[in-house]
Amino acid sequence: MSRAPASGRAEERSTWTGWLRARTLDAMPPEHLLPDTQPAYVASWIYVFGVLALTAFVVVCASGLVIALKGPTWWQVSSRGHFVNSLHLWSVELFFFFMVVHLWGKFFMAAWRGRRALTWITGAVIFLASIGTAFTGYLVQQNFDSQWISTQAKDGINATGIGAFWNVLDFGQMLLWHVALLPLAVSVLIVLHILLVRKSGVVPPIGVDLDGRVEGAAAKEAAP
C-alpha cells in the first residue's frame, strides 16, 4: 500500500491552514488512521489488550462522570451511588489489569522497534499517570482509606519536596486533580499513544523485514 504525498500542491503551502492540513494528512493519511486491514502477523490474542485497556478507561470515565454529576458525597449516602462507585472501582481494576498485560505483551514483542520508542514512552507515562490518578481517587473517597492513605503517603511525597506544592491532605486540591487535571492528562496521552500506533502501524515480527521476508528462513522454505 503506497500513499500519495499530500503536501505537494503549492496552494496548500500558501496558507497556514493549508500547511497544517497538508502536514496532518502527510502524517496521518486516513488509511493509516482507520485501516480496514492489518499486516498478516496481527493474529494473536495479545493484541486485544490495548483495546481492552482503552475501553476499560472509557468505562472508568463514564462511571466517574456519573459520580461527578451527583457530587462527591453522593456515593456515601446513596446505595445507587455506592453501586456506581463499585462500577468505578472495578473498571479501574480492569483498566490496570488489561494495561499491565498489554505492557507485558508489548515488552516481549520489543514493540519499540522501528522508530516506535515514543509509542512505548507515552504508554509507560500513561501507566505512571494512571497510578497517580487512581491514588488521588483513594484520597477523595472521604472514608477510612482516604484518611489512612493520605496520612501515610504524605511522608513519601513530602520527602521529595513535591508535598509542599501538592498537598495530599487537602481534599479540595486532590478532588480537582482527580476529576479534572489527571483524567485530562491521561486522556490526552492515550489519544497521542493511539495516534502514534496508527501512524507507524503495528510493529513487524522480530526477524521479518518490511516486505514480509523472514531472515534466515530459506531452509524452512526449501523443505518439502
Binding site: 482507520l34 480496514d36 498478516a40 481492552l52 472509557v58
Partner: peptide, 24 residues
C-alpha cells in the same frame, strides 16, 4: 532499523471499529 517504515508484506482484514465496540 529494519522495522521502520510501512509494511509491504501480506495483509489480512481487520475491523478496528468492530473490535472496539465488542471490547466496550
Amino acid at each position: 532499523d529494519p522495522a521502520a517504515g510501512d509494511w509491504r508484506g501480506p495483509r489480512r482484514p481487520y475491523d478496528l471499529v468492530k473490535e472496539f465496540i465488542v471490547a466496550l
